[in-house]
Design a binder for these strands. Sequence first.
DNA 1: CGTCTATTTGAATGTACTCAAAAGCGGTGG
DNA 2: CCACCGCTTTTGAGTACATTCAAATAGACG
Lengths: 196, 196
Amino acid sequence: MDKLDILQKHISLKVDIDSADLDRFVALTTPRTIEKGEFFIRSGQVARYQAFVLKGVLASYSIDTKGEKHVVQIAIEGHWISDLYSFLSKEPAVFTIEALEKSELLLMSNENHERACDEIPVFERFFRLLTQNALVHHQRRISHIYSESAEDRYLNLIKEKPEIAQSVPQHYLASFLGIKPQSLSRIRKKIAENAR
Amino acid sequence: MDKLDILQKHISLKVDIDSADLDRFVALTTPRTIEKGEFFIRSGQVARYQAFVLKGVLASYSIDTKGEKHVVQIAIEGHWISDLYSFLSKEPAVFTIEALEKSELLLMSNENHERACDEIPVFERFFRLLTQNALVHHQRRISHIYSESAEDRYLNLIKEKPEIAQSVPQHYLASFLGIKPQSLSRIRKKIAENAR
DNA sequence: CGTCTATTTGAATGTACTCAAAAGCGGTGG
DNA sequence: CCACCGCTTTTGAGTACATTCAAATAGACG
């Protein structure tokens, strides 16, 4: 089962886990395949699950009063995604999460997440470390949004996650970078000209 | 000791804790007073501590290649602050953390943080929930940076944290909002004019 | 009081924006 | 297989908002 290898590798990066515990973890999840364009979470509904991405890509975005999407996260293989606030509080989600291609997920319900944390200390530790990492990442991201130009953020993005640049339509990337698709197109044009 | 009340109230919001555990928690911290303008953490040095703010205000910012500051967090009473990445990894900090006024802190070293999480399950839970909350907050913030104008972000800020608008110099607020002090000044002028 | 820093204001500039249209690309059905 | 449709990306022209540079005013602190 090389799908589980992805999960095991991911968990082992943070905590020591034996195969019995890994099985317990997996038992708390349910696999799901999601088609391109399908929604994992719709804003306004409660996010009952968080998802670990085994394969594929999903994007999480808010929609503002003008109907504009604002992508806050792009999750590829080996990442977790959900509307965390909704997942934890059972309040309606503010983010919409959409599959950008056919993807395979492991879903964990809120109940099972709580159970895992309550009953198995190593899982509570795992989720603490996972969340700490994500927080560090978000702090960095805010700092980059403020200190770097859109062009630099784009260059960093394709350097750090080249696979995203391949598989994700540009208007999602633009939104993730906080700019309009037209602007990203012009930035790309400029980069291409400078490279010549 | 009403200082400890602040801590107890803060912890009790997330987990049930008895007074013996609270004492154990406090025993893992050391109090520190920090003067206005002093640095709690300097970028380039390892952040050995995280701080719980009992009183006062601190700001965490990065400094870019042009020497510009970019404030990523403003911590008031009842908040934790550190360069989390450095604190967790023992790598040099990228953020500088400065007291904006005379403040009282409870410091927790990395060793004691790990000990607390290892030895006292309720503390590991506490820190997990604390970090989850912070992550939710950061995701929201990114979404707001993208979807709201600087003016709206400023109005929200003074609505949600009026005490910050009082005590924090405007150029720090401007930086926190991702704009220059001149721009904030103009935004305030415009708001004042519209209010007339 | 005087110095230093923060804030405000003015004028010119720049970067990303909007609106609009053209070109490119992918998938579907004839 | 190709023509057509819908959606994405590119390009153009004019605009808006924050920026830069510069200077004046206001405020804080010794």
